[in-house]
């Protein structure tokens, strides 16, 4: 059930009551949204490195973007400034190496989304479940 960074905001409740200074606590969906954006960036970089993969990878990159946008909508505020852009993988231009690196990132993303789904309130569970399932299908599409 541990969600790493996502657990931190619990202590922020008192701050909310004061209501004035200080940023609101981060939404537990932030790490999932950031990961979706990072996954999209990885796919776009892979497509640039190996354009022959574009047909296979573009729909997946688009799905990650759709996930990030939907998560952002549910969070209800813009992405925190200074969100670190994850460096694209250094898999070079070899298609097999690129696909393998993407698989590793999807595997991790699937696990994180499933954990977020397990911990989410009812009104967010379906979205996170769809994202976890989508990432599983991406792994299948990369095979």
């Amino acid at each position: 059930m541990a969600l790493g960074a996502a657990v931190v905001p619990v202590t922020g409740c008192d701050l909310l009551d004061r209501g004035d200074d200080g940023p609101p606590p981060p939404d537990p969906l932030e790490p999932v949204a950031a990961e979706a954006a990072a996954l999209e960036a990885r796919y776009r970089a892979a497509i640039t490195a190996a354009p022959d993969l574009a047909g296979r990878l573009t729909p997946i990159a688009d799905a990650h973007r759709a996930h990030a946008e939907e998560l952002r909508r549910v969070i209800g505020r813009p992405a925190p400034s200074g969100t670190p852009a994850v460096a694209p993988s250094t898999a070079g231009t070899d298609p097999a190496a690129l696909l393998s690196a993407l698989s590793g990132a999807e595997q991790q993303g699937r696990k994180n989304a499933a954990q977020a789904c397990a911990a989410a309130p009812a009104d967010r569970a379906a979205l996170l479940g769809s994202i976890a399932a989508a990432r599983a299908t991406h792994l299948e599409a990369l095979k």
Partner: peptide, 23 residues
């Protein structure tokens, strides 16, 4: 969702994935 993807591939449909399975 995984089986749907495999059937889509078998049927020659592209893309083989959907953005929000089950939605």
């Amino acid at each position: 969702a995984l089986r749907a993807t495999r059937w889509r591939r078998a049927a020659g449909l592209t893309p083989v994935t959907v953005a929000f399975p089950g939605r």
